[in-house]
Nucleic acid binder design. Structure first.
Lengths: 343, 343
DNA sequence: TTTTTATATGATTTCGTATTCATAATACAC
DNA sequence: GTGTATTATGAATACGAAATCATATAAAAA
């Protein structure tokens, strides 16, 4: 069952292979009629050019890799979906790879880049706090999505698309304060330097400060480790821990909606009520946060737009069109749900 | 910035390219010391063999494609994640492609197969009801995951991994009956022949029959079309429709958990209570169904196991190890939550 | 020692396509 | 009508690795 090659087509048409090649690739130097004839024969013989041979000759693959930390995180769903559609549309091959949290993202990227001759890379999420390898070792275009480029020197000039986590966190915690909450717990990952956790914590601190509320270490609850970190389970367990302690908190800022929902469950099981006894806010603006009862007060991230923007930057870089170093900050939107109340 | 090739390595080692090739690919006909020396040089020069060239020579790619209908569906998350891990582990390239509902899945697969020289295909979800092209045109190994192979002749002998949707649906609807419900609405997709919708509907009908309950067309509610079909929104809108009608239903069998949760929201907004006024059951056993308040009575599908089983079958076929035509049926598990009560 | 066999190795060919180069055919300018 | 530019085309080569083939060397058998 050997497949038909360009040679076969050439023979069938009574022309040379280069002529066939010209027809396939819309190259000049071929008459309209010859081209038409060839294309017709190709159509009929259902010939498809061998990708490996093409790529070998062109010394590049039309592959864009998306490296993501935790496919399971449903926040990424619409983003990945958008990536897939867009990349497919541009006739690139879309490959998806998870990166374990403890791995050096950059070296994974480097290896992949060489092995697969990538055209571009999107980092989706990720923290880079453990990446010893510097991003500038990557020689193909890449962009960070949903990760604001930290100030560290490893990230200088790295194109990225994100919302301003610190600002948005500030916004939502400030909103809690405006409702009269003075004891606000934060459920996050507290490791220094970790992208999301760090920025959201900063926003939290700033909001407290602005509202003249003292910051207490004891109000900071660290989520589970590893893949479960941002899950309902993580929020559930962390809230249980909090409820068992003699915390005086009246509100919880959860690092994302899933964690918030998990927390709500723990509160419910402890015989309390949201927002009656505890106000709970999330982050991300997942679909579920709208339909959950009570609907979750959250920060909506414009995920589809962000995904599109990231790929636009990437394609521009691939085409060498414009200056790199674009850092697009999208505005988040405070969505006031039923999970918060004034006290 | 041209990359180092096998020739360069050969030159650096003072040997021929074939010797280098032998060293790389663990082929016989090379002395241990030469091999060691070469591998060392390769290590140092961080040479990576060009994939296209390899694949061209071997006339095959180490690619496994996963074709999925609706990446957005969070039911697929853990499955895709599992696929990715497993495929990566076996040193294959993992490519993911969405298939629009209105497209012929099989022709998409065929095109991809030829273009990319795939090693195998997994169909995740999907309905095939609009695929005119027959599955047996696909010449690489493939397997259906979470789709029970329908009886139609197009599917004869097609390996698949699934739960028995009809049986499990029967189970959960029968459970509703056992609680005393006699008017049970079903929220599903009613198009004839559509995989999931069809089987779950059959189970629903059988359960009614067993419990001597008449089947009424009016209790069947069709979900939204297209990508939103299995979403919370779909359940929400459908439930609104039902509540506006003078339906006497006391229970709802939603085609999946997301739809169930959407329905709960509509019930809540109408001033009713789950399970007080309506019992609601879902399907799939998503994480959220455990944490939702009330937790959702559902059928849990063992998704990780199913994913692993599907790939095992696929790899066996790829290695030509065993007889094909395996249809593995996993048992679902009825999880009784708080969203149902006896009346 | 001579012949046979096994082993290690390099030169060469091959995979299927794109591209470069050379050439034939045609159109255009003078 | 001769010379030049233009267009259409096929032959030959390159891409990088793997496999085939031929050969040199060493080891074993005669």
């Amino acid at each position: 069952m050997k497949s038909v090659t360009i040679k076969d087509i050439a023979k069938m048409c009574g022309v040379g292979v280069s002529t066939v090649s010209r027809a396939i690739n819309d190259k000049p130097g071929i008459s309209a009629e010859t081209k038409e004839k060839i294309l017709k024969v190709i159509e009929e013989s259902n010939y498809v050019p061998n990708n490996s041979a093409r790529n070998l000759k062109r010394s590049e693959n039309e592959i864009i890799a998306v490296l993501v930390q935790g496919i399971n995180n449903s926040f990424f769903n619409p983003i990945i979906s958008e990536f897939e559609k867009f990349i497919q549309e541009k006739n690139y091959t879309f490959i998806l790879q998870q990166i374990d949290e403890y791995k050096d993202e950059v070296s994974v990227a480097l290896e992949l880049e060489k092995e697969k001759k990538l055209k571009g890379i999107v980092f989706l999420g990720g923290m880079f706090h453990k990446s010893k390898t510097k991003l500038d070792k990557i020689s193909v275009p890449f962009v960070l999505c949903t990760v604001s480029a930290p100030e560290g020197k490893n990230f200088r000039g790295v194109p990225s698309v994100s919302v301003d986590d610190e600002k948005e966190s500030f916004k939502i915690v400030d909103y809690l304060c405006s409702l009269g909450h003075k004891n606000i717990a934060i459920f996050s990952s507290t490791e220094v330097d970790e992208g999301i956790g760090y920025h959201r914590m900063q926003g939290y601190k700033k909001a407290l400060k602005k509202n003249n509320i003292a910051y207490f270490n004891t109000n900071v609850y660290n989520l589970l480790d590893g893949n479960e970190r941002y899950s309902e389970k993580s929020g559930y367990i962390t809230a249980k821990k909090m409820l068992k302690s003699e915390s005086k908190c009246t509100a919880i800022f959860a690092v994302n909606d899933s964690v918030a929902i998990g927390a709500c469950r723990a509160i419910y099981e402890a015989g309390f009520n949201v927002p009656g006894d505890y106000s709970v806010v999330g982050y991300d603006g997942l679909d579920i946060s709208r339909y959950y009862i009570p609907s979750i007060t959250t920060i909506r991230q414009p995920v589809e737009e962000m995904a599109k923007a990231a790929l636009k930057i990437l394609f521009k870089m691939i085409n060498g069109e414009e200056s790199i170093n674009q850092n697009i900050i999208f505005p988040g939107q405070l969505i006031i749900g039923e999970s918060t109340r004034s006290i």
